[in-house]
Amino acid sequence: MSILEAREASVSRGQRLILKRASLSLTHGELVALVGPNGSGKSTLLRALAGLWSTTPREAVMLDGRPIADIDRREIARRIAFVSQDATIHFAFTVEEIVRMGRYPHRGRFAREGGADREAVRLAIARCDIEHLASRAANTLSGGERQRVLIARSLAVEPEFVLLDEPTASLDVEHSLEVLDLCRSLAASGHVVVLATHDLNAVARYASKVVLIHQGEIVATGSRDEVLSQQSLEQVFRVRADAVAGGDGQPVYVFHRL
């Protein structure tokens, strides 16, 4: 069982320290939500975990006990998928071509596409429910469809960890529920899914673990009820939340400015 962890990881961009000594451990079958206000460092933490941004100390992010900075880029890519918030698709690639790009870290420079590659692409497309779009030009899709295509590309990698930066930010209600359901089913099948998001109600409903970030620091990690307390919501988000019972008995938050 693989473990991806950050141990007091700091990240700075230019002169500014944007992630301060963050510690977090991720393993099998979790759906972890990173929450926090704009600019709190959620995306930074995701990029550090994906090995895309370097940390101080250099060895602060470890994959199975090895510093991620020492692991070959392709090996990281085979195990950790990162879905960026920017869902722009440049040029009129078909959906299938986009998803096939996900096999890049598995194929040698001169290797032909093999049976395993085709099977992984087929499964990823089926899992994200985009078979009917396979031959469409990906840059003509709606936001929700595009997001699913990009997730499918990451699943074609067959990664153990799936890190998504605000996957529902630009989606309407139905599509964001679709993406969240997909995340939940990924976690149920053994993936580690990490989700940076603003949608606290989604977090409450879907996440098995919640990480609250504020001004570059992880201020709380734990279950929904532990982390999204009245007190932390007031301190971090500067809102008051009324928890109302939803139809299924789960709480739904209604927010008011302080």
Partner: peptide
């Protein structure tokens, strides 16, 4: 020889990096 790197780079440098392109 570099055509597949080029496909991914075409989608953005961060995307390319996240799929293992140096």
């Amino acid at each position: 020889v570099q055509s597949r790197d080029l496909d991914l780079l075409q989608q953005g440098e961060e995307t390319a990096a996240s799929f293992g392109v140096d």
